[in-house]
Design a protein around this nucleic acid. Structure first.
Lengths: 308, 308
DNA sequence: AATAACAATTCAGGAAAATTTAATGTCGGA
DNA sequence: TCCGACATTAAATTTTCCTGAATTGTTATT
């Protein structure tokens, strides 16, 4: 059988032009060539295929042979494939299509899915993957390029990242409503330090913040810590009376509103921090990533839980 | 948007090879080229598309960019289109696919459809069109190339055709069973000439044959003719007692067997003629036509009606 | 029937493109 | 830090492609 390797798009385009104009001269005009050039292309194709592709028509003009009609069909299919490819690439260039991996810290999982859902509605041809991990894991993923854009609290010194604040992020200490410190106007530092703290594992942003906070108000005084792997577990533990915990208010909005947890009026609380969106300094953002970035910067505030 | 006109199959094939080997050198080996050649092709494509298509992979080797993946998809689609086209053309070359117009004289319509049906079962990718006309019309169509292959009695002197006999074709004179000449061992020429003849129109092969037969046995004596446009009408007319008719035995097999018509034992009857398959001498047969020709020559005998 | 008009086809020469060889740059692994 | 493999660039060469001119063939016209 004749080999596919000898076929060129020029040949197919020549066939198409001849089919439409019924003349080599006309085809040449369409293609911006001279008739001999078109003729050569057709001849070359006929050589490869081992059969005629065009022939003189009944009265006048050139018409496709049955084989030529098959070639024309193929040409049309090829054309569609290539056009579709170009369109998709074009969409990519404009940031309307592509794939973006979004990494968020555990705490953000209470609002990030809502952002992603809205994002997918707005930019339907961008495939967004949401990865959740603790602060350390997300940063590591950012370095390894397995995450393109991240959302977390305070951006790190290392690795070097580009970051932008996107909204307030209050941190509170929560206790069960029947806790003895609950409802007090002012809770003394020592009273706080006496409690058992339920905290996330090392590498968690909340854990780091908590340690620094307790060291500051307690001036280095020791305190007791119980470690748990997820915010959800911590909430349940606090409700169950195992201890108190520093936690993102966004994580416990529902429980505070329902009265299943209360925020303690300990010194400096709530700590008003910010949410940041960030990406690795070295990573050249694709248009799709830029679209996602912009969307997050402009719209994420709508998704932060609030007590009111 | 980047223009489709700048894309070549060489470029697509280069992308494909790189995708499979993860290296320009490897791709070059696959394509029987040197690495710079492949590199140039990729560069050219990237110019047209306005974006990178391949890039150095994480560790080593070359990988496709997301845009490159789209190009690869397109390449695969193009490949199947072209392969399918080549396969179809190949089938055409082998006479396994194509389009053939078969022209048959009216008389042959009593067995031609059966041939076509069997033909389509055997050569399922050949599209067969069956056209029915009288002898003159079929010959005209043969000249005009609107019929590729024809089946009829005696091939004409003009136009020049290639012909081959495919089976016996007895002509008889039929009468109603209660006709006074019916059942006689030997019917005299004069008794025949006295009858009213129901005949097809001018241009019909049967008509020509009848005229020559009657002139021969009657030595020029006149006779009476009534003209009717189809064999079916003639049969009904004879059954109704309007007259007698010379007709192909194949046309009246059913009626003879059932006794609704009888063949007269007039001189020289039945006239043993042949069926012929034929095509215009000037027309180069396509492989598909050759397949059909061969099928008819080898198989048509199975479809002739017989009295036994 | 001769001829004019037009389009396909052939061909030679030259332009453009593709490919190769050779040289250079770059990265990962010993 | 050197070595080797490979990508990349540059320059030279080969191949392909295109054009313009000439030729052939066909159709329409006189």
């Amino acid at each position: 059988m004749s080999d596919i390797a000898g076929i060129t798009l020029k040949q197919l385009r020549a066939v198409d032009a001849v089919a439409r104009t019924h003349s080599i001269t006309g085809a040449a005009r369409e293609l911006g060539l001279t008739p001999p050039a078109v003729h050569t292309q057709l001849k070359g194709l006929e050589d490869v295929l081992g059969c005629r592709v065009v022939a003189k028509g009944e009265k006048s003009g050139m018409v496709l042979t049955p084989e030529g009609e098959l070639v024309l069909q193929a040409q049309r299919a090829v054309d569609v494939s290539l056009k579709s490819c170009l369109n998709q690439i074009d969409a990519m260039k404009k940031g309307l299509a592509g794939r973006v991996v979004l990494g968020v810290v555990s705490t953000a999982k209470y609002f990030a899915p809502a952002i992603v859902a809205e994002l997918k509605k707005t930019l339907e041809n961008i495939e967004v993957q949401l990865n959740v991990g603790n602060r350390g894991e997300v940063l590591q993923a950012l370095v390894e390029r397995s995450v393109d854009i991240a959302i977390m609290g305070r951006p790190p010194r290392q690795p070097a990242v580009v970051s932008k604040p996107i909204g307030m992020h209050p941190m509170v200490i929560v206790a069960p409503p029947d806790h003895r410190l609950a409802g007090l106007d002012r809770v003394a530092p020592d009273a706080v330090l006496d409690q058992t703290f339920i905290a996330r594992e090392e590498g968690s942003g909340t854990r780091i913040l908590m340690v620094r906070y307790l060291d500051r108000i307690g001036e280095g005084k020791p305190y007791e810590t119980v470690e748990m792997g997820s915010n959800e577990t911590i909430k349940q533990a606090v409700i169950a009376g195992l201890g108190i915990a520093m936690i993102s208010q966004h994580t416990v909005t529902e429980e505070l509103r329902a009265g299943r947890l209360v925020a303690l009026n300990a010194p400096e609380l709530p700590i008003e921090r910010q949410w940041y969106v960030l990406h690795h300094e070295k990573l050249e953002l694709t248009p799709a990533m830029r679209s996602v970035w912009r969307f997050i910067v402009e719209n994420s505030h709508r998704f932060f839980p609030s007590l009111e």
